[in-house]
Amino acid sequence: MDLEQIIFTIISYSGDARSDCFEALKYAKNGSFSEAEDCIKKANEKLLEAHHVQTDMLQKEALGDRRQVTLLLMHAEDHLMTAILAKELIGEMVELYKTIYQREGDFANA
């Protein structure tokens, strides 16, 4: 794969993962936690794919196959890190929504 293909693969997987995370958040807001968890799982799979591409590039660089660092490559790395952060934060938010819905149910049943 040439450098541009690598970059756009990372951007594509990362962007899709980020979208899955925000979809999970929408489900969690509505109390649809099974769907939210499915979206987080999809995001994890996509982030793993992006990470594999990134790791392959890092391993090749460690073996001496150096690539030019471009603004586009930095942009791809930014997308990946932002998607990872979104997944972690939104995963926590889903758990918070679960707690809120559980407590609301506890109050309604009291």
Rank of each mutant, 00 (worst) to 15 (best):
S32N: 12
S12N: 14
I10T: 13
R67K: 12
F22H: 06
V53K: 06
E23D: 15
E23T: 15
Q68W: 00
V69R: 09
K26F: 04
M57R: 03
K46I: 07
E104G: 13
A86I: 06
A108M: 11
E23P: 03
I40L: 15
K98N: 06
L96H: 08
A36K: 01
Q54M: 12
L73R: 05
E4T: 15
K87H: 05
T99C: 03
L80E: 09
L72Q: 05
L47A: 01
E49K: 12
E77V: 05
E4V: 14
E88W: 00
R103D: 10
H51A: 10
L85W: 01
A36F: 10
Q54T: 04
E61N: 04
T70P: 03
A86R: 00
F22N: 02
K46C: 00
A108Y: 13
S12H: 04
L58F: 13
F107I: 14
G64W: 00
Y27M: 10
L96I: 15
I40F: 02
K46V: 07
Y97T: 11
E49I: 03
L48G: 10
E95V: 07
K87R: 15
L80A: 07
A83T: 01
T55H: 11
I90R: 01
L72D: 10
I100Y: 01
S34P: 00
C39L: 00
K46L: 14
A28F: 08
A17I: 14
F22S: 07
M57N: 02
E88A: 10
V94Q: 10
H75T: 08
N109F: 09
C21M: 07
N44P: 01
I6N: 10
A36I: 02
I90L: 06
I11R: 08
S34T: 09
T70R: 08
I10K: 12
D56P: 00
T70N: 05
K87T: 02
N44A: 04
S32A: 06
E35R: 07
L58G: 01
M93F: 04
M1G: 15
K46M: 09
L71G: 01
K87P: 01
E104A: 14
D2T: 08
V53T: 12
K60H: 08
T82R: 08
E88Q: 05
S34I: 13
K42A: 11
H51G: 06
Q54K: 14
E61W: 02
L48W: 04
Q68D: 09
V69C: 05
M57K: 12
E45Y: 02
F107Q: 12
A43F: 09
I40V: 13
E77P: 00
H51I: 11
Q59Y: 02
A50M: 06
E88C: 03
M57C: 03
E95Q: 11
V94E: 01
T55D: 09
F8R: 11
C21V: 05
L80H: 14
I6G: 03
